[in-house]
């Protein structure tokens, strides 16, 4: 039940001439369009998955560049404006001595997005090449990417909360910079990119399942 035995001998729904539903697991004969249990559209493999993954990946990457160059947040203190980019905000936090918080923001807005770009690219590339090594490892990589991607939104939320709190009548006022916009776009694009990936293709090989 739990241990993985001999993974090579496992029969997939596709190899058996059937289609499995990715939402509820019900198995159907090939040619059935919608799942009889949950109503989701059935597809043995999403043949356009890699195209969608790369399209959203590039969109996310392009939006990520201005997100790092332009200011995330504009702070006016005693009439003096001070703009800080994502990295600038991390450095400000670290200089104030809040190393732990600086680390959280650094992790959420720099390490997670970059790691995500690399991980999705590697997964898409390995599936395209039909590489069959460390399958379970690659699945875990995919699950981590899917789970952790949303957390990049922290920095945008922080900017929104600061803007709401520090309004006009205070000594310090904060307004969001244009990078907040491009960063949000980048996070949304990479989330859709990760969701477009079909993890079932991790196990497919040329021999067993001819790729369309």
């Amino acid at each position: 039940m739990e241990n993985t035995g001999k993974p090579a001998s496992v029969l997939t729904a596709r190899a058996a001439g059937l289609v499995g539903c990715t939402r509820c697991g019900r198995v159907h004969d090939q040619g059935v369009a919608f799942c009889l249990r949950c109503g989701s559209a059935l597809q043995s493999r999403d043949t356009l998955a890699l195209q969608k993954v790369w399209a959203w990946w590039w969109a996310g990457l392009i939006a990520y560049i201005p997100a790092n160059i332009y200011p995330m947040l504009r702070m006016t203190q005693f009439g003096r404006p001070h703009e800080s980019s994502i990295m600038g905000g991390v450095i400000d936090l670290a200089q104030h001595g809040d190393l732990w918080v600086a680390f959280v923001v650094f992790f959420a807005s720099i390490i997670i997005p970059i790691g995500k770009f690399i991980a999705i690219a590697y997964l898409a590339w390995s599936v395209k090449k039909g590489i069959r090594t460390r399958d379970v490892g690659r699945l875990h990589m995919y699950e981590i990417v899917e789970f952790i991607g949303r957390w990049s939104m922290i920095d945008v939320f922080v900017v929104a909360i600061l803007t709401a709190l520090l309004q006009m009548d205070f000594i310090v006022t904060v307004s969001p910079g244009i990078a907040a916009f491009s960063f949000t776009v980048s996070v949304v694009c990479t989330m859709i990119s990760a969701q477009s990936f079909d993890p079932r293709t991790i196990w497919d090989t040329e021999k067993e399942t001819p790729r369309v």
Binding site: R14, L18, G20, R23, V27
Partner: peptide, 24 residues
């Protein structure tokens, strides 16, 4: 219990396909 290689056509009833890897 996994399903191993099969000669006959399988009936979809009474089977579950893993949603992430398609194993029956």
């Amino acid at each position: 219990n996994p399903i191993h290689a099969h000669k006959d056509k399988l009936s979809p009833n009474g089977l579950i396909a893993c949603p992430t890897c398609d194993a029956l």
